[in-house]
Simulated assay, not measured.
Amino acid sequence: MSKWSNLAKKVLEGELLEKKEALEILEAPNDEVLSIMDAAYTIRSHYFGNKVKLNMIINAKSGLCPENCGYCSQSIVSNAPIEKYPMLNKETIIAGAQEAIKRQAGTYCIVASGRAPSKRDVEEVAGAVEEITKTTSLKICACLGFLNEEKAQRLQQAGVHRYNHNLNTHRDNHSSIVSTHTYEDRVNTVNEVKGSGISPCSGCIFGMGETNEQIYEIGVSLRNLDVDSIPVNFLHAIKGTPLQDQKPLEPLACLKILALMRFINPSKEIRISGGREVNLRSLQPLGLYAANSIFVGDYLTTDGQEAEYDHKMIEDLGFEIEECAL
């Protein structure tokens, strides 16, 4: 049995991965990657079998954001040529749910740019969610920015199942990426979501200058927050943003990160999210030996690959799409 398999056995017995062991995964020679992914798959299959959960995003409000996040094409410091528009109306958001079903997605993600949603924005989204959940079995994830207790409760009452608010980067790297809000602001919103009874979703964007120690500590922070879903994004450097010149991560490095997130958060949904096509490239299928979830279709302002390609990729692996909404 390889040392990676022994680590997987340790994790499945309920022990926590030590920092030294985590760094060994990230720093392993590339010829060890298949063994690492095999061990990660042992954990993944224990909790999720060969099921893959599909998620689809609608960009419900684009651009016009006062925050200065260096990675984001929608931020106030971005010159990226993106479409900008206010919150979509309820009817348009509802129509997007049918597209999610067509793509075999079980979760429909309603995402809006901005620091925090206005009361009107919350009501528009809540009204759409109420209609969608009456007529489909889609699960709804919302990502609207910072929340207070009142807004979180309104979304929960409307039927929002999950709320996404990413940590985005390590606490010590945060100020180099954004200065218009703090790391603690992001943690507080995740805790507000948990307090409202909505399932918390929070992850990171890797490839923004983190050290290996910080990558490990991000995984631990997410474990300590006890979030249910962890989107693992890899920076897609967009022209016109402050991070436009950042180089993509190497595909094998991305696989090691995905494996590490599975080792640290064994029973949680690990979703390969933004930037997978750019960073993992031809190795995208291997990522599903650690992750059990992906986005299908386009992201917020960048293109994803065709849904049919993702469906075929899952089929070719011998995996199954988790049952979608009716």
Rank of each mutant, 00 (worst) to 15 (best):
residue 3 K to G: 00
residue 4 W to Q: 03
residue 5 S to G: 15
residue 8 A to N: 08
residue 9 K to W: 07
residue 13 E to L: 15
residue 19 K to E: 15
residue 19 K to G: 04
residue 23 L to D: 06
residue 33 V to Y: 02
residue 40 A to K: 05
residue 42 T to D: 12
residue 47 Y to V: 06
residue 49 G to N: 04
residue 54 L to E: 04
residue 57 I to G: 03
residue 64 L to P: 05
residue 65 C to W: 07
residue 66 P to Y: 05
residue 70 G to L: 05
residue 71 Y to F: 15
residue 73 S to C: 03
residue 73 S to Y: 00
residue 75 S to R: 00
residue 77 V to T: 11
residue 79 N to L: 13
residue 79 N to I: 05
residue 81 P to C: 07
residue 84 K to S: 11
residue 84 K to M: 13
residue 84 K to I: 13
residue 85 Y to I: 08
residue 86 P to I: 02
residue 87 M to P: 02
residue 87 M to I: 15
residue 91 E to A: 13
residue 91 E to N: 11
residue 92 T to R: 12
residue 92 T to S: 13
residue 92 T to I: 10
residue 93 I to D: 11
residue 94 I to D: 07
residue 99 E to Q: 13
residue 106 G to F: 07
residue 106 G to A: 14
residue 108 Y to E: 08
residue 112 A to S: 15
residue 113 S to F: 01
residue 118 S to M: 07
residue 118 S to I: 08
residue 119 K to F: 09
residue 120 R to Y: 13
residue 122 V to K: 06
residue 122 V to Q: 08
residue 124 E to F: 07
residue 124 E to L: 15
residue 126 A to T: 02
residue 128 A to K: 01
residue 129 V to P: 03
residue 131 E to D: 08
residue 131 E to M: 02
residue 132 I to T: 00
residue 133 T to E: 08
residue 133 T to P: 01
residue 136 T to H: 00
residue 136 T to R: 02
residue 137 S to E: 12
residue 140 I to G: 01
residue 154 R to C: 06
residue 155 L to K: 06
residue 156 Q to H: 11
residue 159 G to E: 07
residue 166 N to T: 04
residue 166 N to G: 09
residue 166 N to C: 10
residue 166 N to D: 03
residue 168 N to Y: 02
residue 169 T to Q: 11
residue 171 R to A: 14
residue 171 R to P: 01
residue 174 H to A: 14
residue 183 Y to M: 13
residue 184 E to T: 13
residue 186 R to C: 13
residue 193 V to N: 00
residue 194 K to V: 13
residue 195 G to C: 13
residue 196 S to R: 09
residue 198 I to R: 02
residue 198 I to L: 09
residue 198 I to Q: 04
residue 206 F to A: 06
residue 206 F to V: 05
residue 207 G to Q: 07
residue 208 M to D: 02
residue 211 T to G: 05
residue 213 E to S: 15
residue 214 Q to N: 09
residue 222 L to W: 10
residue 227 V to M: 11
residue 232 V to A: 08
residue 237 A to E: 09
residue 237 A to N: 10
residue 238 I to C: 08
residue 241 T to A: 14
residue 245 D to Q: 14
residue 248 P to L: 13
residue 264 I to W: 00
residue 265 N to Y: 10
residue 267 S to P: 03
residue 268 K to P: 03
residue 271 R to V: 08
residue 271 R to G: 03
residue 274 G to H: 04
residue 279 N to K: 10
residue 280 L to G: 02
residue 286 L to D: 10
residue 288 L to K: 01
residue 288 L to Y: 15
residue 289 Y to D: 09
residue 290 A to F: 04
residue 293 S to E: 14
residue 293 S to Q: 12
residue 296 V to D: 05
residue 298 D to Q: 06
residue 299 Y to N: 05
residue 300 L to A: 10
residue 301 T to P: 06
residue 304 G to M: 08
residue 305 Q to P: 01
residue 306 E to Q: 13
residue 308 E to P: 01
residue 309 Y to S: 11
residue 310 D to E: 12
residue 310 D to S: 03
residue 313 M to H: 07
residue 319 F to N: 03
residue 320 E to V: 12
residue 323 E to Y: 09
